[in-house]
Design a protein around this nucleic acid. Structure first.
Length: 280
DNA sequence: CATACGTCCTGCCAGC
DNA sequence: TGCTGGCAGGACGTAT
């Protein structure tokens, strides 16, 4: 479930804790979640330091410090899928037991560790060089909270698209970082029916949606993300935005905007919550 | 190219 | 009580 606001919250938390600390050891407990492989990941991390934590869409990008005599830059990329977690915690000893059976990679620092856990194993950690990173980055659509994501850019994205507007919001190659929960909340805020073909939105609807994207994502970041079931931040703390959800997970409840009820349907193969009276 | 859909994985819960 | 089937969904591969 981690979407842009959750990943951004994790990013900030890690930035405050892991930068500059030597990586003493890396333990890979499930090699399926590690690319290109266990040995390469261990070799690529041990003895280095994280120098920067960035984010693109729902992907975390850790810059790795170079060893003496090296000139090639390398990165650790993390995708958390639906139930992935990256939790930093103090560790009393290097032999300390892993935090749970779903923890697949442990990155050990002096007196602390970063645990990568994922109950459903949809995510992965990947070691990449400059070219590998560039290839990944090229697949993302615009970053919705950046200045360069203007109303004009958004309008151009919808032009000619016959796909449902919700499917477009979820398409990371069109716009980065939005997942199922925020897509529903954004569409509710904008008063747009999730099934509408993207190109049929009026100028007014398009700009309402643009403002809703930016405002919902910003509010959710301020609330430290949404915890519906699994999400916790880099310190193991739940988010706060779940209390402010208007339609997601509220099937059958009264719409916050009218006397109608929130409905749940399938759009783009995803469970979709909306109010048929408020969203046209 | 654009769009749609199946697949991966495990936990959980409704229903029998 | 214990089992089963369906659902949750991010990203990618394949099909149309």
């Amino acid at each position: 479930m981690p979407e842009l606001p959750e990943i951004e919250t994790i990013r900030k938390g890690l930035e405050e804790t892991i930068l500059g600390r030597p990586i003493l050891a890396v333990e890979v407990r499930d090699a399926r979640l590690v690319r290109p492989g266990k040995a390469a990941l261990v070799r690529g991390l041990e003895g280095r330091k994280f120098t920067r934590v960035a984010r693109r869409g729902k992907m975390l990008i850790f810059s790795l410090g170079q060893k003496k005599g090296e000139c090639a830059k390398s990165y650790l990329l993390a995708r958390l899928g639906m139930t992935g977690r990256l939790v930093y915690a103090a560790a009393k000893s290097e032999q300390e037991a892993p935090p749970s059976k779903h923890c697949h990679v442990l990155i050990r620092f002096s007196q602390a560790r970063l645990a990568y856990c994922d109950a459903r194993r949809f995510g992965h950690l990947e070691l990449a060089d400059e070219a590998g990173l560039a290839e990944k980055l090229a697949r993302f659509g615009p970053e919705p909270l950046e200045k360069s994501f203007t109303l004009g850019v958004w309008r151009a994205l919808l032009r000619g698209r016959r796909t449902a507007i919700k499917a477009l919001l979820l398409d990371q190659a069109r716009i980065a970082g939005i997942g199922n929960i925020y897509a529903d909340e954004i569409l509710f805020r904008a008063g747009v029916d999730p099934r509408r073909a993207a190109a049929t939105l009026t100028d007014g609807e398009t700009s309402k949606l643009y403002r809703a994207i930016r405002s919902i994502l910003r509010q959710a970041i301020r609330a430290r993300g949404t915890t519906v079931s699994d999400y916790v931040d880099a310190t193991g703390r739940s988010g706060g935005f779940q209390n402010r959800l208007q339609v997601y997970g509220r099937e059958g409840e009264r719409c916050p905007g009218c006397a109608g009820k929130v409905q749940r349907i399938q759009v783009a193969g995803r469970s979709t919550h909306f109010c048929p009276r408020c969203q046209k």
